[in-house]
Lab assay of single mutants.
Amino acid sequence: SRHTFEINGERWTVEGVSEELKEILRAAERASNDEAERLLRLALKLI
């Protein structure tokens, strides 16, 4: 499935992501810059 999210003013669209990964991306959208970066690094390990 496709998911579009915005982090630090940048929009991203990813396809074929699991519900778990979507949850991480949604958390990154709400997080501070440092926390968002940490969550994105974690998410990339899952891809």
Score class of each variant (00 low, 15 high):
residue 3 H to L: 15
residue 10 E to R: 11
residue 43 A to E: 00
residue 38 R to E: 08
residue 33 N to T: 14
residue 3 H to M: 14
residue 17 V to I: 13
residue 10 E to H: 11
residue 5 F to R: 01
residue 45 K to G: 10
residue 16 G to R: 06
residue 13 T to H: 09
residue 2 R to K: 15
residue 42 L to K: 07
residue 20 E to G: 08
residue 45 K to I: 11
residue 18 S to L: 04
residue 9 G to R: 01
residue 45 K to A: 12
residue 26 R to W: 09
residue 35 E to F: 06
residue 34 D to T: 13
residue 6 E to I: 15
residue 30 R to A: 12
residue 36 A to K: 12
residue 8 N to W: 06
residue 33 N to P: 15
residue 20 E to M: 09
residue 32 S to I: 07
residue 33 N to L: 12
residue 28 A to T: 02
residue 12 W to N: 00
residue 3 H to R: 03
residue 4 T to W: 12
residue 39 L to N: 00
residue 3 H to S: 07
residue 6 E to V: 15
residue 42 L to G: 03
residue 24 I to S: 01
residue 31 A to M: 05
residue 47 I to Q: 03
residue 5 F to K: 01
residue 8 N to D: 08
residue 44 L to W: 06
residue 7 I to K: 01
residue 15 E to W: 15
residue 6 E to M: 14
residue 17 V to T: 06
residue 22 K to I: 15
residue 11 R to H: 11
residue 19 E to W: 08
residue 39 L to S: 00
residue 46 L to T: 05
residue 4 T to M: 07
residue 13 T to S: 07
residue 40 L to I: 07
residue 33 N to D: 11
residue 27 A to L: 12
residue 32 S to T: 14
residue 19 E to F: 07
residue 37 E to V: 12
residue 46 L to M: 14
residue 17 V to G: 09
residue 23 E to Q: 12
residue 41 R to M: 10
residue 42 L to A: 04
residue 20 E to V: 10
residue 20 E to C: 11
residue 42 L to P: 00
residue 28 A to K: 01
residue 27 A to I: 07
residue 16 G to E: 09
residue 14 V to K: 01
residue 30 R to P: 02
residue 2 R to C: 15
residue 26 R to E: 11
residue 20 E to Q: 11
residue 38 R to C: 11
residue 23 E to W: 10
residue 42 L to W: 11
residue 4 T to N: 06
residue 11 R to A: 09
residue 18 S to H: 05
residue 8 N to F: 09
residue 41 R to D: 04
residue 23 E to Y: 09
residue 45 K to L: 12
residue 31 A to N: 03
residue 47 I to S: 04
residue 7 I to Y: 04
residue 44 L to R: 07
residue 47 I to L: 14
residue 30 R to C: 11
residue 29 E to C: 04
residue 36 A to M: 09
residue 41 R to I: 10
residue 13 T to D: 06
residue 11 R to N: 08
residue 5 F to D: 01
residue 17 V to F: 07
residue 30 R to N: 12
residue 38 R to Q: 08
residue 26 R to Y: 11
residue 38 R to K: 09
residue 34 D to Y: 11
residue 22 K to G: 09
residue 44 L to T: 03
residue 24 I to T: 03
residue 18 S to E: 04
residue 14 V to D: 01
residue 4 T to S: 11
residue 44 L to Y: 05
residue 12 W to S: 00
residue 24 I to Y: 05
residue 20 E to P: 06
residue 8 N to I: 04
residue 12 W to L: 06
residue 5 F to E: 00
residue 42 L to Y: 11
residue 11 R to Q: 13
residue 42 L to E: 05
residue 15 E to D: 10
residue 38 R to F: 09
residue 4 T to Y: 11
residue 35 E to R: 04
residue 29 E to N: 04
residue 43 A to C: 07
residue 2 R to W: 13
residue 17 V to E: 05
residue 8 N to L: 15
residue 44 L to G: 02
residue 47 I to Y: 07
residue 29 E to F: 05
residue 47 I to H: 05
residue 11 R to K: 14
residue 12 W to D: 00
residue 40 L to Q: 01
residue 31 A to F: 03
residue 46 L to K: 06
residue 42 L to M: 09
residue 39 L to Y: 05
residue 42 L to C: 09
residue 17 V to K: 03
residue 28 A to P: 00
residue 26 R to A: 12
residue 6 E to S: 03
residue 28 A to H: 02
residue 32 S to C: 08
residue 44 L to F: 06
residue 40 L to G: 01
residue 4 T to A: 05
residue 1 S to C: 15
residue 12 W to F: 13
residue 21 L to W: 04
residue 19 E to T: 08
residue 31 A to I: 03
residue 13 T to P: 02
residue 39 L to T: 01
residue 37 E to K: 12
residue 34 D to F: 10
residue 31 A to D: 02
residue 19 E to R: 04
residue 30 R to F: 11
residue 24 I to Q: 02
residue 36 A to E: 03
residue 43 A to G: 02
residue 25 L to E: 00
residue 35 E to P: 02
residue 24 I to K: 02
residue 40 L to W: 08
residue 17 V to Y: 06
residue 10 E to G: 04
residue 9 G to H: 02
residue 46 L to P: 00
residue 33 N to Y: 15
residue 1 S to A: 12
residue 7 I to N: 01
residue 14 V to E: 01
